[in-house]
Structures are given as structure tokens and as C-alpha cells.
């Protein structure tokens, strides 16, 4: 039986269930509007470790433990771990899962990693290759600044279009049975690059990819955007969100203001927290989904959402060589109850 519909979309035969979700968020995120939704808020982003990188791995490890505990399982029940982060060679996740001794697929999709992980995890379940799978993504503000921008103690100003990398980790356990919201469709994104080169405006670099994935998803599933209670992009921020709505309008797709949002906008209070265009990083969509949207889906407050983590796939080397920033976005359709 062919589970692929249209150009890029998978329709699951027996939609996998997200049986639990856990989130750990950093100090600044814990001062934002979503503070009461996270499982753990760090009081210190070093988390008692010797470096930001070690702290991120510790966060990954602990979030997985919480997610597995909430699912009523033990780590040995997990068939695969799908995870990724922003650090070089995925070390944040690798060292985070090192002690679990479970099969691990390290992923890199920049800030779209949560979508990539959930999509692949759901495919592993529906394909019959696994019973319980973990999907997660993490990032750390300090480690990212150090790797991609400037040392933390540099006294420079952040441009208005720039975003603030989220410190934290969001992890879900996806299973072939149990209760919870189900993943019905996955639309894997393709790389879209409209030539944006400004690494301080990643929302602009990713908006065309988000638009492409949304348009493709709706076409493949023959759905109207109104089908979804909410369309949630990953980390476009205010700038990218505005551009996405303009791009969708060019395609003849108009979505009500209250039915489309972005995790990077939800997670911070722009004026009080001085975060400029909003939040970004792998953990942006991951912690916002796990902490804020998952419980709403679980209780049925949201009937369904289209969750679209977005990623900017550049490196300091590619930017140094004058390359533009390729964008990607993966859409995950999640239903509170399947009819």
C-alpha cells in the first residue's frame, strides 16, 4: 500500500501517537510568556557543568528522561532516538544520549530539526520498524553565539532583525499505541533559497521555505488552510512571519491572523525581553510544541495543528564564502483525535 500522496506528503496508515512530551527551558525563556508551560526552567544556563556545550548535553539527557518517565516507559523500551542540535557535528545530542545505550540517529536540520525528527520517528513507527521512538531537538543560546556569532562578552548591538537562540530541549515519545494526539501527515520540505545572505535575518531566509511547504502540503492533502485550528511555524520571528503571510497571499492563500502563528513569536515578550525579532534555534519550535501546544492537543483545546519547524541551513564557512542561506521547513499534521 502506498502511503505517499501528492508530491512530498506521507499519509500514515495507522497514525502514530505522541504519548508524551517534555520540555526544559533556559532562564530567559522561563521569564517569558510561556513560563508556566515548561517542565523545568533552568536557574543557571550552565547547569552546573563546565561549559555551555556540556550543559546542553545535560539538558538533552534530562529532557529525554522526563519524556520517557511521563510516557510510563523506561529507556530500554525505546527503539530509536532521533535527535539533533546546532553544535558542530551534533555533539549536543550525541553526548546527551551517550549514556542511554539505545540506537541513535543524529540529525541535522538546523532549527527545523524537531520537524525532521518527528517526521522520521513517525515513519519508523508506521513502517512497523519500532514500537516506541523518541524525537527531540535542543539548542543553547550561549553555545550558539560562541559558534556562530561572537563571544558572549563582546559589547556589540544585535540588529533589529536578529533572533534570540532558545536555550532548552523539547522531546516527544511517539508510539504505535496509546492515547494522545496523532501524527497523520508529514510533508518533508525541500530546500528553498531566494538568495538572502544576511545571517542576522534568518526569518527572511526561511520564510520562502515555510511558504513552499505549506502550499505543497495543502495541495498534496487537498485541504484548505481553514482545515487547521492553527498553523504554527518554527522560528521565523516577527520579520519572517510577516514575510510568510505576504508570500502566502501571493499564492492566493489567506489565513486569519489568529490561525497562524510562530513559536519564535510566542516564546518571548518582544518589548520586555529585548529579543528583537523573536526566538530561534532548534529548541524554539521543540520547547514551544512540547510545553505549550502538546497539552492543548491532548486536552482537545486544539483540534488539530500543522506544525512547521523551519531551518536556516548555513554554516560560518558557507557564509564566509559568500553563499546565501538555504531554508527548509517540514510540516507535521497533528490531530487531537482521528475520526
Amino acid at each position: 500500500m502506498n502511503k505517499k500522496i501528492g508530491n512530498q506528503t506521507i499519509k500514515f496508515a495507522s497514525p502514530p501517537v505522541i504519548i508524551s512530551a517534555a520540555s526544559i527551558a533556559g532562564k530567559k525563556e522561563g521569564e517569558g510568556p510561556l513560563k508556566k508551560y515548561f517542565d523545568v526552567i533552568l536557574s543557571d544556563n550552565l547547569k552546573g557543568e563546565k561549559s555551555w556545550e556540556k550543559a546542553e548535553s545535560k539538558i538533552v539527557e534530562n529532557t529525554i528522561k522526563i519524556a520517557v518517565y511521563k510516557a510510563g516507559l523506561t529507556i530500554d523500551d525505546i527503539d530509536y532516538i532521533f535527535g539533533g542540535d546546532l553544535l558542530n557535528q551534533d555533539t549536543g545530542s550525541t553526548f546527551g544520549v551517550r549514556n542511554f545505550r539505545r540506537p541513535f540517529f543524529g540529525l541535522f536540520g538546523a532549527c527545523s530539526t524537531m520537524g525532521e525528527a518527528m517526521g522520521l520517528a513517525a515513519m519508523a513507527i508506521d513502517g512497523g520498524f519500532a514500537k516506541n521512538v523518541i524525537a527531540g531537538a535542543s539548542s543553547h543560546f550561549c553555545a550558539s553565539e560562541k559558534q556562530f556569532r561572537f563571544p558572549l562578552d563582546m559589547g556589540n548591538q544585535r540588529p533589529q532583525s536578529s533572533t534570540w537562540t532558545i536555550t532548552g530541549d523539547g522531546t516527544v515519545v511517539i508510539s504505535n499505541k496509546g492515547s494522545g494526539p496523532r501524527i497523520t501527515h508529514v510533508t518533508a520540505g525541500k530546500i528553498v533559497d531566494l538568495g538572502v545572505k544576511d545571517a542576522n535575518n534568518m526569518g527572511a531566509a526561511m520564510a520562502p521555505a515555510a511558504c513552499d511547504t505549506i502550499v505543497t502540503h495543502l495541495k498534496d492533502t487537498k485541504r484548505s488552510p481553514n482545515y487547521y485550528d492553527l498553523i504554527v511555524t518554527g522560528d521565523l520571528g516577527y520579520v519572517g512571519h510577516t514575510l510568510l503571510k505576504q508570500l502566502l497571499a501571493q499564492e492566493g492563500i489567506y489565513i486569519n491572523e489568529e490561525k497562524i502563528t510562530d513559536c519564535g513569536i510566542e516564546i518571548f515578550n518582544k518589548t520586555a525581553q529585548d529579543t528583537h525579532s523573536g526566538g530561534s534555534g532548534c529548541a524554539c519550535s521543540a520547547v514551544t510544541f512540547c510545553g505549550y501546544f502538546y497539552p492543548k492537543l491532548k486536552t482537545g483545546e486544539l483540534k488539530n495543528i500543522l506544525f512547521i519547524p523551519t531551518g536556516a541551513l548555513m554554516s560560518t564557512t558557507s557564509s564566509g564564502q559568500g553563499e546565501s542561506i538555504p531554508g527548509i521547513a517540514h510540516a507535521i499534521a497533528i490531530e487531537s483525535r482521528v475520526k
Partner: peptide, 8 residues
Amino acid sequence: LVFNPKEK
């Protein structure tokens, strides 16, 4: 030698 990086 004396100081450690400070988070913002």
C-alpha cells in the same frame, strides 16, 4: 584566567 564567560 580569572573570569568565566557570562550569559546575557
